[in-house]
Simulated scan of single mutants.
Amino acid sequence: MTIEAELAGKVPALDAVAVPALSIVVPTFNEVANVPLLVDKIRAVFPDQNWEIVFVDDDSTDGTEQVLHGLCRKYPFIRSLRRIGRRGLSSAVVEGILSTSAPFVAVMDGDLQHDERLLPAMLAELQSDKADLVVGSRYLQGGSTGEWDASRVRMSRIATYLSGLITDAQCTDPMSGFFMIRRTTFDGAVRQLSGQGFKILLDIMASSPTPPRLKELPYTFGIREHGESKLNSVIALEYINLILDKLVGRWIPVRFIMFSLVGGLGVFVHMSVLTVLHFLGEPFVYSQSLATVAAMTFNFFLNNILTYRDKRLKGTWPILKGLLSFFAVCSFGAIANVGIANVLFQRSFTWWLSAIAGIFVGVVWNFAATSIFIWKRR
């Protein structure tokens, strides 16, 4: 019996496997204590079996993956995707949604801070065809940010305001990580998603070819009882990356913008070191050389942390090898910079225009070469 024969009608069709009406995608990283509790909570609000949970784990180091394997063996409605060498909530959510055929998909965190009791109401809104996207909102009347301190509330409000730069959707909480979407709506936006950072809801709304019909339901953000929060300063940077990607990403890669900004900070480091050594009476050639090495070292480590966070080099040997390669690549960039500038100047271009052209060529070379040879992003 073959699939080809079955499709041709030559043999009876195999019994079809029922597709769940709802798939709940939960990205995880080091949530070993929370995962079993979340499964129990979701089972309590959906006693009738017509749903599944898809956990997408970014190679947790605390035993989360082993717990997920045990749950998958025990419950047929639980699946687990393990990602090796890839990080990021947005990309994890995208991969989780793409792995299912359910007509409706919910997204929620694995830390128990999203109120699972809202899921049936969300599903009812989609099934009644009143909305394409239902968002759990902390800022709608009846909702709350829970025990957030004033600074975190303020930052969230600022991020919500900035979201207006890239979407016209009238949503009180575009930063929410708790929502449910019609699969066809997601499919319409998926090819335009940037996959930047943690704010996948905003990415979807900004990427949809037509504004989805939106419904918001209030909920109170819960308290994390187990594990550590993933919120840090890098999250804010990734959010800025998302905004930039939607504003200018079609013309200029956001990673190139980050690389250039790091280079600008490197100029400051270079001049600071050069100034100090000059006032200490050191020879100019020595001072300039040391300042160049200091700036290039600074640029390498900051790019490794920020620009290429998802491909960060780790370990003594990979970092040392990457640093030496960075020196070599940027040395060629410096030669190209000076060479192009000199050629243009000799052809009667103004000195400042020649210099800018040389700098641009050097930056483009450094970005392209380091992406390929150091951080392996082809």
Rank of each mutant, 00 (worst) to 15 (best):
A341Q: 05
A102N: 09
G188D: 11
E31W: 03
R191E: 15
T2C: 04
S272M: 03
A341C: 09
L89S: 04
L193A: 07
M1P: 08
V67K: 13
K230N: 11
T184S: 15
R43F: 05
I223V: 15
W51V: 07
P218V: 13
L265D: 04
Q196P: 00
V153I: 15
D203F: 03
I78G: 01
V293G: 00
L353F: 08
I200M: 13
D58K: 12
E52F: 02
F198A: 11
N232W: 04
E282Y: 00
A295I: 01
F198W: 11
A33V: 01
I158F: 13
G197T: 06
L123K: 09
T160A: 12
L14S: 11
V254L: 02
F104W: 13
M155K: 14
L320I: 14
L89A: 08
S101Q: 14
Q170E: 07
G177N: 07
K321N: 11
S325T: 13
F373I: 08
T61N: 03
G249P: 13
Q346R: 14
A328L: 15
F104D: 10
R378C: 10
L22H: 11
F256L: 15
V363Q: 13
M175E: 10
Q141T: 12
N50V: 10
D149W: 02
S371R: 13
I181G: 01
G177L: 08
I340N: 00
R117V: 08
D173R: 09
L89T: 12
T61F: 03
Y75N: 04
G197V: 10
E116D: 05
F29V: 10
S272F: 03
L344F: 08
V107K: 12
L290K: 00
V190Y: 08
P211Y: 02
L265P: 00
Q196D: 09
T2K: 06
I53A: 03
I204D: 01
L302K: 02
S325H: 07
Y75H: 12
W352P: 00
H226I: 06
E147K: 12
Y75Q: 03
R250G: 13
P20C: 05
T2Y: 05
L81P: 00
S101A: 15
W148N: 15
V234N: 12
A206Y: 01
D57V: 04
G263N: 11
L71A: 05
L89M: 09
Q192G: 15
L247R: 10
F326Q: 01
I240F: 15
L306A: 08
T292M: 04
N34R: 04
W251M: 12
C330I: 05
R182V: 06
T220M: 13
Y219K: 10
S60Y: 03
R312G: 01
I181M: 09
C72E: 10
